[in-house]
Amino acid sequence: MTAAPTTVGGVAPQTVTRSGFELFWLRFKEDRAALLGAGTIGVLIVIAIFGGPIASAVTGHPNTEQYQQIMQDSFGLPKGPTSAFWFGSDGEARDLFVRTMYGARTSLIVGVVASGIAVLIGLVVGMIAGFYRGIVDTILSRTGDVMLAMPQLLISIGIVAACSSNKNGCVIAGPIAIQPGLALVIAVIVIFSWPYIARLVRGFTLSIREKEFVEASRSLGASDTRIIFREILPNLSGPIIVYTTLLIPQSILFEAALSYLGLGVPPDTASWGGLLNDAQRYYDTAWWLMFFPGLFLVITTLAFNLLGDGLRDALDVRAER
């Protein structure tokens, strides 16, 4: 169509001609803290993907290789940073630098995957509860409340301990079994994370469903599914992105907590939480064991928090005009 502009209703707005995304970007790129967070996360992702192998290649130290001869003193205690072992060695005389780099992969995978699954479950449950209300809402919300009321760490210890006691894990029903390892850790984190998201999403859904644009869509003949996914979901993107970025470091810390209790990923697999767990045995003799993985954990947590805060500000719909 080549119709000339036929704006009758006064002057077309000259000042605001930006799409939602451009507007978001304009505000986001002014937010130094958020950019720093995003940049750091970028670097962390690169480390997670390539860091381990590169560190191994550069130092010539494989992930699980033990260097008792050079990196343990006469008492069998780990040695601190040297020019060949940048972060020193861990309790098993492995290269802590290489282990920390490999640990980035485990920790980020746990953080991202666990948060992703939790958000997905929370979204679906929250939207259904908020949209249909009534009995459906009562059942879903109470289930979530029960999950939140349980002593998380205690239950986690129970589950993980029960499932880690033998190689087959704990059999739920026939072929369905929970086996120890990454998947189990992720599952435990998801179980205790989704109710937060569901509660949040339910609240937003309850208020969005009363908006007139939802009525308008219904009066056009839209189905419930269409209303949920096309009208309500897009309006949840802001809070969801923000909460995901905040949930990721929480999940990483959760994994660290489980590892610290010796319930995390298998000992050979490096994770920051696992490294910190090892560190407690040498807390008074080997500061580097605590320091380097801890530093990465703190930086990661901080970076996601900065990004989350920045996204929250930049996505604020109320400030959109």
């Binding site: 908006k211 056009l220 309006n235 993107s237």
Partner: peptide, 23 residues
């Protein structure tokens, strides 16, 4: 009813909340 919805439409009072801000 879905068919009938084509025959009857409604215009809302609030020009802000009646349009989905994300579309």
């Amino acid at each position: 009813m879905r068919q009938l919805r084509q025959q009857m439409q409604i215009i809302f009072q609030d020009p802000y909340s009646s349009l989905n801000p994300r579309k």
